[in-house]
Design a protein around this nucleic acid. Structure first.
Lengths: 220, 220
DNA sequence: CCAAAAGTGTTATGCTTACACCCATGC
DNA sequence: GCATGGGTGTAAGCATAACACTTTTGG
């Protein structure tokens, strides 16, 4: 157990996913300073001494998007000595799932050292700073795995949704198509949905039944 | 992105699993100093500035057990501000799988600040220091998940093993019993084993065919 | 009445489970 | 020759996959 003089720094980086216009997107910020000036990066920040890692991620998200009660999950910790030029920064990566419709971004271009903030399709990312490409790939894989084993998709939908909405969420994340009947059969058999007595304001066609997520699904 | 004056320290803690006498065991060290004097802990150490996290875990393992080429996997990062008294230590937890038969422990009681080192059944742990109980539980769960989805069990066996050896490994880790025929059918259908032309030196009964793990199974 | 999305059931296939007896060897 | 662990197949149940038509609504 030996110590060394120079120190490590710890950040939390958050891959924020949402679905917009039928594609899975991540929120990126464009850096206004070296290193990696003009490159895009996932939002992050230093962990304070008084907060745990989940709290740091939650705080960052709140500071920059005003959102609370967001689904957050720790993915992996990246600590290559060369990942960050000229200092040793270890980052704990998280991903977050948000519903982008009611989102107000609060990035401050002067204090956050960024030029721009925007959503990018995970299938068409610009060049990313640091090892952020790897981090986004880890996060995307984890999201897909989660979707198949847990009930993560609801976090991307409004509280009331149709089965078609849900199926599209799955299709977008898994980047595949699913059989409508099989999907409904399977999802309903999980007993995690509550069928509501309401219908979608038909967006010009036959109204669809609305469902909500049933909170008593905290197993596994 | 604000910095603060006092700093974080980063350790790597490794939950070292092995199978001995039909039980799943973890290697623990008994602390000889405060905090948590006399309590047992999982081995760990500070991350050097020059090494990445995997390397730090590998080095610690080598320093303390002389083993190289050990299966290591990062599990989770624990960073509660109160997990470590009087300083902020964030730890990246790993687990390792080793074959304990040819193991020579090299802990140095004076420099490592420990009184004792020994194996403990995961089902009967002594009181652990810090949040190490949580870490061992995370590691155990991850090991079980890995076993079902990947081919992890081989790491706990010698290069040549019988199907009964393998089945027992699964049974010990999953803490259950498995049907012999179904287990063989399933494991053979995975095409990850090579049937050798050798037989176990019958430990007093009918010799069993030996198998080895087939390295071309690096998918998923 | 037409276009568009909602909704629904059956069959085939593959995977998982349950289950019991004979075989090869050491002593 | 007997005790011990090694080795093997089949049938039933269950989950998944493939597949096409009718219904409801808005315009």
């Amino acid at each position: 157990m030996q110590r060394e003089t120079k120190t490590h720094e710890i950040t939390v980086d958050v891959v924020i996913f949402t679905i917009q216009k039928g594609t899975l997107k991540v929120l990126l910020v464009q850096r206004s300073k070296e290193p990696f000036v003009n490159k895009w990066a996932i939002p992050g920040g230093f962990v304070r001494l008084s907060e745990n890692l989940d709290e740091a991620a939650k705080r960052l998200l709140y500071e920059k998007s005003n959102l609370k009660d967001v689904y957050l999950e720790q993915i992996y910790t990246f600590g290559d000595p060369l990942r960050y030029p000229n200092s040793r920064v270890i980052t704990v990566a998280y991903f977050a799932l948000i519903r982008s419709e009611n989102l107000v971004l609060k990035f401050d271009k002067s204090t956050d050292n960024i030029k721009d903030v925007s959503w990018h399709s995970v299938y068409n990312l610009p060049p990313l700073a640091f090892d952020h490409k790897t981090i986004v790939e880890y996060a995307s894989k984890r999201l897909r795995d989660d979707l198949e084993h847990h009930a993560t998709a609801f976090q991307l939908l409004p509280p009331k949704f149709t089965l078609t909405d849900l199926q599209q969420t799955y299709e977008i994340i898994l980047n595949t198509t699913l059989d409508k009947r099989n999907f409904r059969k399977k999802i309903l058999s999980l007993n995690i949905l509550t069928e509501l007595d309401e219908y979608s304001k038909s967006r010009s066609k036959r109204p669809a039944k609305l469902y909500s997520f049933n909170e008593k699904s905290l197993e596994e």
